[in-house]
Structure formats: C-alpha cells, structure tokens
Design a protein around this nucleic acid. Structure first.
Length: 754
DNA sequence: AGCACGCCGACT
DNA sequence: GTCGGCGTGCTC
C-alpha cells in the first residue's frame, strides 16, 4: 500500500512510500530519503505523486496502537503549513516533542552544572572597599552574583561575563562564595510550593465576563459533529490589576472541573511569568503540566504523554504549548495576547494566538484572548464581529490606576550645566521617598549594555559590527564591544580607526549605565538588575524575582522583561528611564509597542494597599502613544493608531507578507530580490489576483546580519486568501536565478519588518 | 536541510 | 598527481 509521507525537510512537497499493510493518517514512520534516515508522518493514503518512478519501502512503522498525531492536531498542522507556507513535515516536527522526530534516540546522561554561590553578604560599601581593595574584577564578579540573585553558572560567569578562573577562586578564598554542583535539569515549577488558592470574590465585571464565556460554551455542538458551532473567540480587555487571571481560572473551573474537559493556557515567556503559573497550580495542582524551556527532552516527552493520556488536563506553556495533545479540548486561553513572542521567528513562522483561534474553532473549544493592551489586530476583529469584546475597566478592590507624570528629557539638565541627566530630579526625589518608606521601585530601560554606540567626537565615525551593520554596544562589566545580533565581540577602541582621534564618546544609555548611576545616587539602596546579561544563567529570573518578592531589593532595574505580569505589592513607584527607545524604530508598530510597554510597566505600580505613581522620561511628550499611556486611555490610543495605519495601508486594515532574500554576495541578493519581485508582479497579473499589491524591493532596514546581505519586498492584500495563494505559488514555483546560496523567507503576518 | 557530485588551486 | 574548497542539484 502506498502512503503520502510528510518529512521534516524544507522541500515544499510530500513523498510517497510503500507500507506493508496499512497505516492510519498521523502515524510515524522511519524512512530513507537519499542517504539519510528520517522520521516522517503518514499524511495521506495512496499515490499522490504519480509521476515518481522509484517508490521505496518505509523502514519501520513506529506508532502501532495509535497514531502519534491525533486527527485534530494533524488538521491544525495542515492549516499552518498552508497559511504560513511551510512544508507540513517541518510543521509537524515543531508541533511534537523533539524525541519523536529524532531517528536515533540518544539518552542524555544526567549532567551536573558547576555553580558559584555567594555565602556571605557585604551590606555596606565600606566593607566592600576594605575586602576588595584594588581587586576590581573580584568586586565586579561579586556584584554580578548579587545581581543574578546570589548564584550563577560558572560557564556563564566565564564565557559570557568574561571573569577569569582566578577571580572566581579569589572570591572562594575570601570566604565569600563557594562552588557547588547542581543537576542540570531542575524544575523550579515542580518544587515551588503551590500557595493555597486565595479566597476571593469576583467583581461584577469579572462575574459578567465569566458568565458570558460560560453561556457561549452551552451552545457548543455535541461531540462528533465536528465542532461546527464553536463559540466566537473572546477578547478580554482588562486594565492592569483588574484580575484577568481570576477570570481564566473560573473558566477553567467550568471546563475542567465541571465538564471534565482539558484546556491550554498560553503565556508569553514562561520564565518571566512564574507568578501566573503558580496561581494556576494553586487551583489545579497536579492536573497542570507546565511546559517550559528548562525541561529535558525526556521530561518534555513525559509531560506530552501525560496530557495525551488524560492524566493531566491543563497544559501551561509558551508558544509551542498551543500544540499540547489535550484530547478533549474545552478551552484555550492566551494571556497577554499582544505579545510578539507568540510569533515564531523561524519556520514554521506561526503566530500562536492565531493558531489558538484556529485550533479552538476546529475542536469546538472556547478561546479567550486576554490583555490590558490588545493588539490592533485583535481589537479590529471585535469591531468586525469576529471576536466578542469583554472589558474589565477597573482594578480589583477599587484600587486606583497609578498617576502617571511625564518628564520632558529635552529640559532635564544637571543643575547649572548643559549636561543631560539619566535620572531627572523629580524621579530621584520620588525614589528617595520610596527608600525612606521602605517601598520598592521599578526602573525600566529597554536597552541593555552600558552604551549603545561608540562615536568619534572629531569625525563622527560610529563603530559598527562588520557582520551585521548595526552599532556595537559597549558592555562595561565585560569591557567589550558586543553585537546584539550575532554576539560578535571585540575590545573597545582607544582611538578612532578612521581619523586617529583619541576623543571617543560612549553614547546611548543602557541598563548597565543606569545601574551605575542608581548605585552612585542611592549608595544605601539594594539594587537588582534584570536583563539578558544577568539572567542567561538557568533560572536566574526566579532568584532575582524571589529577592524582590521577599523585599530584599529596593530598586529593580531592567529591560522590558520586568514589564510583564509581575505582581509585587511593595512596588509603589515605576520610572521609565527613556520611553523613546521603542518609538524610534523604523517599524509601523513602533507607536503600539511604546504604548503597550508604558501601560504594562505602569501597571506594576500600586498593586498593594498603597497607591502607585509612574514617571515617564521622554523627549516626545506630545506623542499620542505617550499621552494616551499617561491617561490610561487604550481606546483613545487605538482610535488614533488605527487611523495612522490607513495612509500607507498596514495591518489590521490589510494583511502583509514580508519576503526576505538573503545571501553573502550583496549584488546577487539585490538582483534576486528584483527578479523575485518582478516574477511576483507578473504572477499577480497572470492569475488575476489583483487584490495583491507589491511594495519594494528594497534593502531591509538592517541590511546585513551575520555576514548575509538582506533585501525584502512586501505583499499586501485585504483578502487573506489571495495573499496566501500568491505566497504559495512563490514558494513552490519560483527559484531565484544564479547562486543557490541565496535564501528566500516568506513571513506572513510579520511582527517586525527589520 | 543534508548529502553527493563535480570542477579548480596548493600540497606530498 | 591527489586533497579539499564550496557551488549546484536532488531527495519518494
């Protein structure tokens, strides 16, 4: 019997093989493709490619009792393959635990990790001066450990932060730190004591939302009718602190406890949302499988199987948890649905929010998208009647939203000078107040490192990465210039390589510099910094957030990773060091990103008994994204933003596909982009898909990454189907001329055009 | 994506 | 004379 097999290779077609007797759709098979042995999935019966002359036998049918891909999941993957123009086998590989698509299954040994842990605190600056003297690197290392929450992987300290082995041993010899061995895969969610479910009463808005969602489920078509009457998705727009999580929990109580069905909860980045995760665990305990990036392949497979067999009925995880094999799916919840981390940046380039909506529709589950600042696309869908809008306009317990003050950075100078300040006087005063009252402060700056670029004061030369054409960021702790795109590093210059001048300025304030400024201004304060540089060691997020929660930190400073979902009652002040960082990107969503970031981080203030206050430093105080954030006016912002996106037509008014051509030779990339664009233009004319228009081609805003030149063009259409057809024809029919080293990427519904 | 085949420059 | 550089093309 012949079967159609999808294989995880970037070839836009399936392959025909022969099986001994029969194999159901979704069954895993081991086959040979050329000289390689691969695992694929039966996705059709019979000979779908009749012209092939040599049909091979499959080596082995791997799933005997039941196919590893259930029917609804295969249907979902087909939709993704079609919509996002990706080979079905590549989609299936991404949708299933890695071990299921690995031909050989190596059993990874239990590895241990060498960790350096602080054993003694040095609360005062005097003690530090005395103990470290001129041992600067030891002191920096000590402070890096403090910033990382008290311990850090040795490999992280040595490889990423460039501390030498003698420095680490110096700390141990001084009795300040010790080396310990730790099992590599430890699971903080497994050991985290699940707090007992708090007692609560729903607000009337929460009750209303729960009731509306519950009523929609009453109309679901009974099993076996293929879910044709799935409820419309809900968009739950709740201001920060309005208790969206409790609405999710009530919905899950209904779906899981009363109906006995399963559910999926998506969160943007699981490491950053431990509080949300632990609340679900406190209500549903062992019914919850937490799918996070720290799981080993084996642990991940175990969690997958527990869900598949119905031993756990709720899956919580990031993006890929949308594929969790929950058998009788009753609900899918997408928390912080506006987050761009839901978009996968490699093939398959799916958006988990859109996949969640489709999966809910296919299975008859209810879908709830929640956010304080919904994406324009989602809001637009409530206007067109595709989604139902539910609002939670007030914070729980009548707490007020924080007062937001704007500080014009164009007028913030150091007293009596023309020197710009990092922290303005009103913000400094406000932080002093919090310190005096033992309350906590969060400071946000969406840019890491010490200085984001180095410039010659004489000739204006800026240091760029040779591989990527972006400015190199100076990291002071590492004493290196670092490229944030390819991680290339080089020593900082002492003279201009262009004009020879020794007068170089390190400009563009990053988190490292703010940390130094804060330490200088508030020497008695306990400071923690949270960005990729302090958290790349395993679970360091947890250590840092744990210290904040226990009130061992006065000032938490960091990039956008501190803006999300954190709920610390002690935080009464939020300072945005520079609101313009996100605004100045050449991207049509820059205004939306800025509004979201400001609203999200402002929402961290005043979640306890005491009211919160927010200071926003900006050189663009009149911009509508900032003005609306000050007034907590989401709908006002949306009205203006939607209007902005009409003149050059952008989503949500239209659909986009970004086609990127890249390669090592600048000229042939340009030629290929022009050739592909004119091919597409002809195809549009030939197929009569006039609804699709093409813009470009042009070099990408970042025109070189990792030594590859990049050109792109945009395809636009108000008709999703027409856009999809053109993308699929481009993917299957077009081959760029000349060099095969050219790559073409088709990114549907891109979240960034950089 | 792999993997092989193939066609040109510096080594034994 | 061959080793190996990576450009090109195919995989049921």
């Amino acid at each position: 019997m012949l079967v159609e097999v999808a294989l995880p290779v970037p070839v836009p077609r399936t392959f025909t093989y022969r099986v001994p007797d029969s194999a159901a759709e979704g069954t895993r098979v081991r086959v040979q493709l050329g000289k390689r042995r691969l695992i694929g999935w039966v996705v059709g019966l019979g000979d779908t490619n009749p012209e092939v002359d040599r049909v091979r036998d499959v080596d082995e049918v791997l799933d005997d009792a039941e196919p590893s891909v259930a029917r609804d999941l295969l249907q979902l993957c087909r939709w993704i393959a079609d919509y996002y123009v990706t080979p079905l086998g590549v989609v299936l590989r991404a949708a299933l635990p890695a071990v299921l698509s690995q031909p050989a299954r190596p059993v990874p040994p239990v590895r241990t990790l060498r960790v350096l842990r602080l054993v003694r605190e040095l609360p005062t600056l005097e003690q530090r001066e005395e103990l470290f003297g001129r041992a600067h690197r030891q002191r920096e290392c000590y402070e890096a450990l403090e910033a990382a929450g008290g311990e850090s992987d040795v490999s992280h300290l040595v490889d990423r932060l460039s501390f030498s082995d003698p420095v680490l041993r110096g700390l141990v010899n001084k009795g300040l730190a010790e080396f310990i061995e730790r099992r590599l895969e430890r699971d903080p969610f497994a050991t985290m004591d699940p707090a007992p479910p708090p007692r609560f009463a729903l607000t009337s808005a929460q009750r209303e939302a729960v009731a509306r969602i519950g009523a929609s489920m009453a109309n679901i078509a009974p099993e076996g009718t293929n879910g044709t009457r799935a409820p419309k998705p809900f968009l739950l727009r709740g201001v920060t602190g309005s208790g969206k999580t409790l609405v999710y929990i009530e919905v899950l109580q209904e779906v899981v406890r009363r109906q006995g069905k399963g559910a999926i909860v998506l969160v943007p980045e699981i490491a950053l949302t431990p509080q949300t995760v632990s609340r679900f665990r406190s209500f549903f305990g062992d019914d919850v499988a937490v799918l996070h990036s720290g799981l080993s392949d084996g642990e991940r497979f175990d969690a997958w199987r527990a869900l598949r067999l119905g031993r756990k009925r709720i899956a919580i995880g990031a993006r890929s948890a949308v594929f969790a094999p929950v058998p009788d799916l009753g609900a899918i919840i997408v928390d912080e649905e506006h987050e761009s981390t839901y978009k996968q940046s490699e093939a398959p380039r799916y958006h988990a929010r859109e996949v969640a909506v489709v999966r809910a529709r296919l299975t008859g589950a209810v879908c709830v998208l929640g956010s304080a600042t919904p994406a324009m696309e989602s809001l637009y869908n409530t206007g067109s009647g595709k989604y139902t809008l539910l609002e939670l306009p007030e914070r729980v317990e009548g707490r007020p939203l924080p007062a937001v003050h704007v500080i014009d950075l164009r007028r913030a100078f150091r007293a009596g000078t023309r020197e710009r300040v990092i922290l303005s006087d009103p913000l400094v005063t406000a932080i002093h107040d919090r310190l005096a009252r033992a309350e906590q402060t969060i400071l946000l700056l969406n840019r890491r490192g010490y200085a984001t670029f180095v410039q010659c004061r004489d000739c204006g030369e800026v240091w760029l990465c040779k591989q990527c054409n972006v400015s190199l960021t100076f990291h002071r702790a590492r004493r290196r210039l670092v490229c944030h795109y390819c991680f290339h590093e080089e020593p900082p210059p002492s003279h201009c390589h262009h004009c020879g001048s020794g007068d170089l300025s390190f400009r563009g304030v990053g988190t490292e510099q703010v940390e130094r400024e804060v330490a200088d201004t508030f020497p008695a304060a306990r400071i923690a910094r949270m960005d990729v540089d302090t958290t790349s060691a395993r679970w360091s997020h947890h250590e840092i957030l744990g210290r904040v929660e226990r009130r061992e930190v006065d000032i938490l400073l960091g990039t956008q990773m501190i803006a999300k979902g954190l709920d610390f009652p002690g935080v009464t002040l939020v300072g945005v060091v520079n609101a313009d960082v996100a605004m100045n990107l050449p991207d049509f969503r820059a205004g939306e990103r800025t509004f979201q970031l400001l609203t999200q981080v402002a929402g961290r203030a005043g979640r306890g008994d005491r009211a919160g206050v927010v200071f926003v430093q900006t050189a663009l105080p009149q911009h509508y994204a900032i003005r609306c954030a000050l007034e907590h006016d989401y709908h006002g912002f949306a009205r203006l933003e939607l209007n902005e996106r009409k003149k050059p037509r952008y989503p949500p008014h239209t659909r986009l596909a970004n086609v990127i051509v890249s390669g090592t030779d600048e000229r042939s990339v340009q030629d290929a982009a022009i050739d592909a664009a004119s091919w597409v233009t002809q195809t549009i004319g030939r197929t009569g898909a006039r609804a699709v228009t093409l813009t470009g081609p042009a070099p990408c805003p970042i025109d070189k990454i990792r030594a590859r030149w990049r050109w792109h063009f945009l395809l636009r259409s108000d008709r999703s189907g027409a856009l999809g057809s053109i993308c699929r024809i481009l993917h299957t029919r077009y081959r760029p001329p000349g060099k095969a080293s050219l790559r073409m990427i088709i990114d549907r519904d891109p979240v960034t055009l950089l």
